[in-house]
Design a protein around this nucleic acid. Structure first.
Lengths: 346, 346
DNA sequence: TTGTATGCGTTATCAA
DNA sequence: TTGATAACGCATACAA
């Protein structure tokens, strides 16, 4: 691993390191003669010179790197939730297109609050995107934002006061609409399987939206019809089974995400209940496999790829010194109606 | 963003920067008095001092960062293939546990060959993990390995000569077994839907394994029963439909991965064919949703999380100066038998 | 036991 | 038009 430095390029080209730097960085107004320029370029190419990113960053103060903080670094999450990979793909594309590297920083449940602050303080990154931050980390985010560090929080409804740049979809409204769709079909006995952890705001929002829809239509909530899983199909399966045991009789289910819905569908099938005739099901996310569930899953569409794009674009804007427009709520995507919710009840 | 430097810590503690460095890095045999030690630690804590990673790396020559090269950075891939996120999760966990950061480096189809070499030459990373490298990138990998750069290639059967540290599962053997299972059930009219791109070795290996199984049992191959998709369920659906149109009559399908299998199952259902009675189906990967397909999908298990772990562990060993054991083939995981392949034909 | 001096590979300021 | 020279923040050989 013999590394080529600008000194060697300078030597070969017969100029100083300064000149090399000027030429390679195309510093304007330096009036470098075309001939020296050529010589330097030749030498650089010949030696396969690539500037040392660390040295450059040290002096420029910019690392051209951003980090993505992901909840649930433990595999439990990434394992089963189809949302995150697509978000990452979108974010990554936008960053790389702008010449930024992406550092993947999973946040395990066991991480002490604010563990990510060291990453910032060590000067490795120019900005930070946080997906679905934990409650216990919020104070540290406020602090970073307060210090003017470029920061974008995605998918959380943090209070507005703290000058944090937030972006996201209104999960509550989306969940409300999904539930309302079932109500519109004539359902009143609507169950919900959400997430067990309420460490995360988005997670709570979907439950809130569900409740709001019921309330708006004067439908009382029934505790037995609210179940909890993690993000997995298996947990959806188990939650549905448990629910059928303790409080059967629902005619519809709003699942917290599509994988949960897959599990629930299996449990219903196993219990001899038909979907949508006996129990209609609506999911959330429209993962690529949703259309291939049986029956094909009705679900709230999300566009994680685009959301990743937007989150990255917003961060890059802030890094570039743009105005930190505090909050931007993306439009709620449409409900994709397929077979699993059936037609109007009568 | 006012950053704290070791100079400030030194000033506050009333010592030199050297002493600060010694204390904080716990350099052995430096005989620092317990009292100065305390003072330095206090000062560092009080100021919230975090060493600048760039400056440190510049002088130590180690960045404590590795990069993961991912094929198909375009969302098409990450979008639909459940394998990669789990691999990333495993890799990421192992790296972080050892104090290494992970840089995500997608390789888009459009990338010029060897684009990743700049990343190495710029000194940003201590090692590189390449998942399913493209053929056109191989020469550059040989070069890096030849220069002694820590490099682990996962999931490819590169020729052995080049001193590259390779690790992976024998996809061909796994595919052979999956196909043989169908043959063992009495099937002879077995179709296969694989991947359209043969840029990647793993992709070709599964087709080879399928062919090998047929051959070993004296079953002739039928061109019409080999279809191609990308990684998506949609493509599996389309490939299956096309195949049913041009060459119906197969009694079994070996799908190149589980998402393709999901699509194929839907196409079969739509065509009025029952699974497994009319057409048995075997997938590949055992993604978390495989057990919740209908019927539940028989599939070759892979353990991407563990594979990510192993790849990372191997790389870290090489970075640590360990012997670059050239090739290590992981054991082929078992076939998970569920409902989609049914019982013996008669 | 602690401090001084030097180097890592850049960029950037200033003379020349 | 180009070349010394000083940072950037840290680690470390060497001196005291």
């Amino acid at each position: 691993m013999t590394r080529v430095t600008s000194t060697q390029v300078a030597k070969l080209a017969g100029v100083s390191r300064t000149t090399v730097s000027f030429v390679l960085n195309e510093v304007p107004g330096m009036g470098i003669s075309e001939e020296t320029r050529e010589r330097v370029l030749m030498a650089a190419r010949q030696l396969g010179y690539v500037p040392n990113a660390l040295a450059r960053s040290l002096v420029t103060g910019a690392t051209k790197t951003v980090a993505l903080l992901l909840p649930h670094g433990d595999h439990v999450h990434i394992d089963v939730d189809a949302y995150i990979p697509r978000f990452v793909a979108g974010l990554s594309l936008t960053c790389h297109t702008s010449g930024y590297k992406v550092l993947l920083e999973p946040v395990a449940e066991s991480n002490r609050p604010g563990a990510f602050v060291d990453l910032v303080d060590s000067g490795r990154i120019d900005g930070l995107i946080v997906l679905n931050p934990r409650h216990i980390d919020e104070a540290y985010l406020y602090e970073l934002a307060g210090n003017g560090f470029p920061l974008v929080v995605f998918g959380s409804n943090l209070p507005e006061q703290h000058g944090i740049c937030r972006i996201g979809v209104d999960n509550r409204e989306a969940a409300r609409r999904a539930t309302a769709h079932l109500i519109g079909l004539g359902h009143e006995r609507i169950a919900h399987i959400g997430f067990a952890s309420d460490d995360y705001q988005v997670v709570r929002d979907r439950l809130l939206g569900y409740r709001q829809a019921l309330e708006e239509h004067g439908i009382g909530e029934r505790a037995g019809w609210i179940g909890y899983g993690n993000y997995s199909a298996q947990s959806g399966y188990e939650a549905m089974r448990a629910m059928l045991e303790r409080a059967p009789g629902m005619t519809a289910l709003f699942a917290g995400n599509d994988t949960i819905a897959f599990g629930a569908l299996a449990a219903l099938r196993e219990a001899g209940l038909r979907t949508p005739e006996d129990v209609a099901v609506v999911g959330y996310d429209d993962i690529p496999l949703a259309a291939f569930a049986c029956p094909a899953l009705t679900t709230m569409r999300t566009d994680p790829f685009k959301e990743g794009n937007d989150a990255a674009a917003t961060l890059l804007r802030v890094i570039g010194g743009g105005p930190p427009e505090e909050t931007s709520v993306m439009e709620v995507a449409p409900l994709i109606v397929r077979q699993s919710c059936g037609a109007h009840l009568r």
